[in-house]
Simulated assay, not measured.
Amino acid sequence: MSWAFEFENQPWFAGYRQLSTNGVDLPVLNVFRLFAKMGPERIAATSSAQVPLDLIVKDGVRDQADIGALATRTPDGRIAVRLWHYHDDDVAGPVAQVKLDIAGAKAGSAKRWRVDGEHGNAFTAWQRMGSPASPNEKQYGQLEAASVMQEETLAATGSTRGGRSFTIALPRQGVALLTLDGR
C-alpha cells in the first residue's frame, strides 16, 4: 500500500508522493510492480553489504551503501529475490558487483527486471532530454518507453551445492528482481 497520488496537468516531475507524472509512470511505481511479482512466503536471504536496520534508523545510510536482499517463494516453488543498492546521498557512486547464491534453485536461467538510471526510469530519460517543461509528442513517446521495465533473461554464472549462482551489476540507487524456478 502507498500513500501516493496522481495529479493531472502539473509540471513534469514536480511533486512528491506521486506514482505518475502527466500519464508517464515514475520509477517508484515500477518498484511497487517488482514487489507484486514476489511470493507470499518470505525465505531467508542475507547480504554481506546490507546495513543493519538499527544503524539505518540511528545514522541513515551515509558511511557505506546499503546493498541488500529480500527473498520469497510462491506456492508452486518459484523463488523471487529483490536486490537494492541504496545510499542517502543521491549522487553517482560505484556499481555493486553482487554475487548471488540461491540454494534450491533449479538449473537454468532467471528472469530479471531492473529499475535504475538506465532501466524502467522515465525521470532520468527526462533529465537526459534537458528536462523540457513541455515534452513534445516524440519526447512523450520516449518517456513512456523509458518508464517500461523490460524482462531480461539472466544466465547462471555457476552452481552451488544444491543451487545456482548469478553475478549482477547493480548501479547505485538501483533495484532488481530475479525470479527463477525452485525445486
Rank of each mutant, 00 (worst) to 15 (best):
M129I: 08
R112H: 08
L170G: 12
I56M: 11
V57L: 11
V31W: 10
I67Y: 01
G174I: 07
R112I: 14
F123H: 09
T46P: 01
N9P: 00
E41G: 00
K111G: 01
E144F: 08
S48D: 15
W113F: 14
A105T: 04
V115M: 10
R183S: 15
R62S: 13
K138L: 14
T160L: 03
W126F: 02
A133G: 12
Y86G: 09
G120T: 11
T179R: 03
P27F: 04
K111F: 01
G117M: 14
Q142N: 07
I79C: 05
N121C: 10
F5A: 09
P94H: 12
A110M: 07
S2Y: 13
L53P: 06
R17I: 01
R73I: 03
I56L: 10
K106P: 00
V91Y: 01
P132L: 05
Q64W: 13
T160D: 00
E137W: 00
G108Y: 06
S2I: 14
R128T: 10
D54W: 07
Q142S: 09
V148T: 14
Y86H: 14
L180F: 04
W84Q: 08
F5V: 11
R128K: 14
L19F: 09
D63N: 11
W3V: 04
G23R: 06
W12A: 03
Y86K: 13
R73C: 01
P135W: 04
D25N: 06
A69G: 05
T160H: 00
I79Q: 06
A65M: 06
V57D: 09
T124A: 04
G163H: 03
V98G: 06
E6K: 08
D116S: 15
Q97P: 02
A45I: 07
I67P: 01
Q18R: 05
A69E: 12
L100D: 02
A65C: 12
V24E: 09
T72V: 06
S109V: 00
N136A: 13
T179V: 13
T153E: 14
Y16M: 04
Q97V: 15
Q97S: 15
D59Y: 10
R114D: 15
L83W: 04
I67D: 05
S165W: 00
W12Y: 02
D116E: 15
R33Y: 06
W113K: 10
L29A: 12
D63H: 09
A4P: 00
Q139T: 10
E6H: 13
T167S: 07
L53N: 13
A122Q: 02
L83H: 06
R17P: 02
L19K: 07
R161M: 11
A36H: 07
V98P: 02
E8M: 06
L83Y: 03
K106Y: 01
S134I: 08
Q127K: 12
A65T: 04
S2T: 15
T167Q: 09
P75T: 10
G15V: 01
L29T: 05
K106Q: 14
E137F: 03
N121L: 08
E137P: 01
G158R: 06
A45H: 11
K37M: 12
M38Y: 06
R172Y: 01
R161I: 09
K99F: 03
A96G: 15
G141W: 09
T21M: 08
G15W: 08
A155M: 09
A125H: 11
H85F: 08
A176V: 10
Q50R: 15
R161N: 14
P75M: 05
P40K: 03
Q139V: 05
E41R: 13
A49H: 12
G93A: 15
S134F: 14
K111P: 00
D181W: 05
